[in-house]
């Protein structure tokens, strides 16, 4: 399972200090999510697009990721239109599609895509080990970071185990249907996966003890803040704060 495909690259965004990327992303994401002003959402969307352009990510991959998130959003948009239509059929004075529903729908599309594009280009270009290391510098509790790191470490292991079981039941001609037999098959496979999970967690703890583990996971990848990173941070903060002040004054 190759899940960190976007973190490999040499673009300016890939080379940027992960602490800077996390701060810029959080500022952009929360200012977009918490605003009711569409102008701020447009500005943040355009800024996210600029970062995406600089990050040099494969367009096909980015579109694929955005597509599924937009499919989910489309259910909400359809429900908004359907609600207006129901009101129109009940009361002919009401327009078939209200202006405020269209405004709300387009604002939601802008917000979702702006945050996701920033997410892919800033956090997607950061590997998990860099992310954990940067969060450590940003004073996130080490216990939480250890959980994050161990969890990531065992994702691939459990996914491989799951794949092996899936292949073995498929090889025996298993074809899932809506019946008790299917649910039992899934449950028993899950049961085995659970036993493996529990056993592996005990082994992991013993392995940590054997290595005199003190609660801090040593990370071998280091990074340093460069002048370019500080300029990127300063420009981003200036844009976000100016737009917040301008449109909320």
């Amino acid at each position: 399972m190759h899940i960190e495909e976007f973190s490999e690259g040499t673009s300016p965004i890939h080379r940027c200090d992960p602490r800077v990327k996390i701060i810029i992303f959080l500022y952009l994401a929360f200012s977009t999510a918490l605003t009711s002003k569409w102008q701020i959402s447009v500005l943040n969307f355009l800024y996210a697009l600029l970062i995406l352009f600089l990050s040099n990510l494969p367009w096909r991959g980015v579109f694929k990721r955005l597509f599924w998130a937009n499919v989910f959003l489309s259910f909400i948009l359809i429900s908004l239109i359907m609600a207006d239509l129901l009101e129109f059929f009940a009361n002919k004075d009401s327009p078939p599609i209200k202006r405020e529903s269209l405004a709300l729908g387009s604002h939601l599309i802008l917000k979702l895509n702006g945050i996701l594009i920033a997410f892919l280009s800033l956090l997607g270009t950061t590997s998990i080990s860099q992310l954990v290391h940067a969060l450590n510098h940003l004073k996130i509790p080490p216990k939480f970071l250890l959980l994050l790191f161990l969890s990531y470490r065992y994702l691939t292991y459990l996914h491989l185990e799951y794949d092996k079981m899936r292949m073995s039941i498929l090889a025996r001609g298993f074809s899932p249907k809506t019946n008790l037999w299917t649910f039992k098959t899934y449950a028993y496979s899950l049961g085995i996966l659970l036993v493996k999970t529990l056993r592996r967690s005990e082994e992991l703890y013993l392995a940590l003890l054997a290595r005199n583990f003190k609660g801090v996971y040593p990370l071998l990848e280091h990074f340093a803040m460069r002048r370019g990173d500080l300029v990127f941070l300063a420009i981003s903060m200036l844009i976000f704060n100016l737009s917040l002040w301008w449109f909320h004054r």
Binding site: L147, F149, Y154, L155, L194, T197, S201
Partner: peptide, 10 residues
């Protein structure tokens, strides 16, 4: 901690 981390992956 290892159990919580592994269940998170699960």
């Amino acid at each position: 901690l290892p159990r919580i981390a592994l269940f998170s992956s699960l």
